[in-house]
Design a protein around this nucleic acid. Structure first.
Lengths: 342, 342
DNA sequence: CGTCGTCATGCAATCGATTGCACAACCTGC
DNA sequence: GCAGGTTGTGCAATCGATTGCATGACGACG
């Protein structure tokens, strides 16, 4: 009842013509008053803006897009929104993109490469640019999509498409040096998804650094990169008689710890565990997880910034690629191996 | 180089007129062949569809929206994407909405009610419908927005706007009965954000049930509904000499546990902790958290379904409201209070 | 005081798709 | 063989905003 005054007519939205009529000018003038204020006489401008305000006019985005050929929206495609690694990424991208007055379309591929391609192709039509987070699709597809709309790839290095990737080298080197210093000589790597660029890179880094430190590396898996993936990983790592486990990511590491606890294996006394990503919960478990930290927020910010700069610049540059460093965060899941204890 | 055949012209996108010309028909026929196949002669239809395929035509969404007055996209506004409670919500909504061939705009309010209103108003112009997840804005604003576009409110009960809410009663009753049975008689409730509907409801439920079970309830806070919010909460609960803590949500509960561990207070031996929400990590900590579970996926599905049904129906119904039940999940953070031990 | 230039504004076309209406071709039945 | 129907297609208007071009008003300058 008393809402009658509050709620401004549920009827048709206000168009630029209604504003024009009400202000006694043409639609062109309204458009200019809003988009190029310096082109209209101060008096008129004021009257128009006042009318806009009074009528609560908001330009129709579809009409605007059609005329301008720009949608003022960007797309973000991630493998799994609910994954604690990607959620902060989405959050940061959304915030940056919004700052630049773009709206954000979000889609989740459920970790499926073909869904990924499908979504990217569908989205490429309705956005001004696209951020593909940890894409699993083949490079060829990536290029096809990049040909239709500006694209930035995050968490994967590409030569043909602008990308923000991670250099796992430093973090992995520190992790390997760390367990080596503690006395470990036989470790396991629990692999992530086969098609994943991240997994290949991490595996390669662990292999290389273990080799150079004289650590024997047992590669197990692949496992699903989730909590329960760590169960099997823990069992197989125990069977492989290693003293330390490098997990593909923190979720797997947490699963490993849970499974080890179930089997009565104490961490870090009887088994050391190193995670990857440094997601928020990694510091919240007990014992808190030693893990290779990834600067997610930085990656997200850089991806958004890169896409925005791509859209801003008039002359297309050659694809830029940036690699951000990782580093080891030592907490309490790594220790001296059992045999070496006093 | 060899991409030349793969990558289809980065030039202007294909319009309906190009398809029409290439197929030797008018644009109207192309449009009909795609939208109302039964209206065009099988032979023509086939030729058109084949041409569409060959040229890789995809209708321009902006033009379509303008003509139809529908955008084929929905909006979702959440307080915090990175919050492990909301992330699964977003994921499920995205999936359901996509199934119905809608794209999803996502925005994050950073827990700020005025940002929330601002975003909702901005979005209401460019979507066919809006889901407001755990909105903190006043009911009046909610109604203003609902007048501009179909809206569904999730995690909050409303009389004027269709909503999917939670009935905290059952879960809280079980939680209170549980700690009462264990022997607790003085408990703390760590409040969440003051403006939050959830917090008010939870507080009310705890107050009522503690009263009826003869448990003395100390209300503390409000605290920020995050991990670190639990630090202060833990300290103040200890100072208040309670034997059990009901946290506003799981994140706070985890913060509490961490702080208790730091202060050498053992859970559940010296302090029982009950969380709220049953987010994924609640089962992954040690000890695993006893908590009041919320059917997030169900809420998300129901919200999406409700909005879609609102859009599908021609005659507007009066706002429907649904309440989903909560329940207690007993894990290992609740036990007999210290004094009562053998 | 006349001419020219500048400034402010309006007209009309445009973006790409949809759709009411008109028309042509064909079919049916008497 | 012709009226009345049905079916398939095209024309042109429409959605709402932007923008190149034209026009009218006004001021400056000689």
């Amino acid at each position: 009842m008393d809402d009658a005054t509050e709620v401004p007519e549920a009827s048709r939205p206000v168009t630029i013509h209604m504003v024009a009529a009400s202000a006694g000018v043409s639609a062109s003038t309204v458009s200019r008053a809003l988009n190029f204020p310096e082109l209209v006489k101060p008096g008129t401008r004021e009257r128009v803006l006042e009318t806009v305000e009074r009528l609560g006019y908001q330009p129709n985005r579809a009409a605007r897009s059609l005329a301008l050929g720009r949608t003022a929206s960007l797309g973000l495609i991630v493998p799994d929104i609910a994954n604690p690694f990607f959620a902060p990424f989405v959050k940061v991208v959304q915030a940056r993109v919004r700052e630049a007055n773009y709206a954000l379309f979000l889609a989740d591929t459920d970790e499926d490469p073909s869904t990924e391609v499908e979504l990217a192709l569908a989205m490429s039509q309705q956005v001004d640019g696209l951020i593909l987070c940890s894409p699993r699709m083949p490079g060829r597809k990536l290029r096809t999509i990049a040909a239709k709309t500006p694209v930035v790839v995050a968490n994967r290095l590409s030569r043909s498409v602008p990308s923000i990737a991670l250099d796992f080298g430093p973090g992995v080197q520190q992790a390997v040096a760390h367990v080596h210093a503690l006395g470990h000589r036989r470790c396991a790597y629990l692999s992530g998804p086969g098609g994943s660029w991240s997994n290949r890179q991490r595996l390669r880094a662990f292999t290389a650094h273990c080799e150079s430190y004289g650590i024997e590396l047992v590669v197990l898996g692949p496992y699903e990169p989730v909590f329960s993936g760590g169960y099997r990983g823990a069992d197989e790592a125990l069977a492989a008689r290693v003293t330390a486990i490098f997990a593909y990511n923190d979720m797997v590491a947490l699963g490993v710890m849970s499974r080890l606890a179930d089997r009565g294996v104490r961490v870090p006394d009887e088994m050391s565990v190193v995670g990857f990503d440094d997601i928020e919960v990694a510091s919240m478990t007990s014992p808190p997880l030693t893990t290779v930290a990834i600067p997610v927020d930085t990656v997200a910010k850089a991806s958004a910034a890169l896409l925005l700069s791509l859209l801003a610049e008039t002359t297309p540059q050659r694809p830029a690629a940036q690699e951000l460093a990782t580093r080891l965060v030592i907490r309490n899941t790594t220790g001296v191996p059992k045999e070496d204890r006093i």
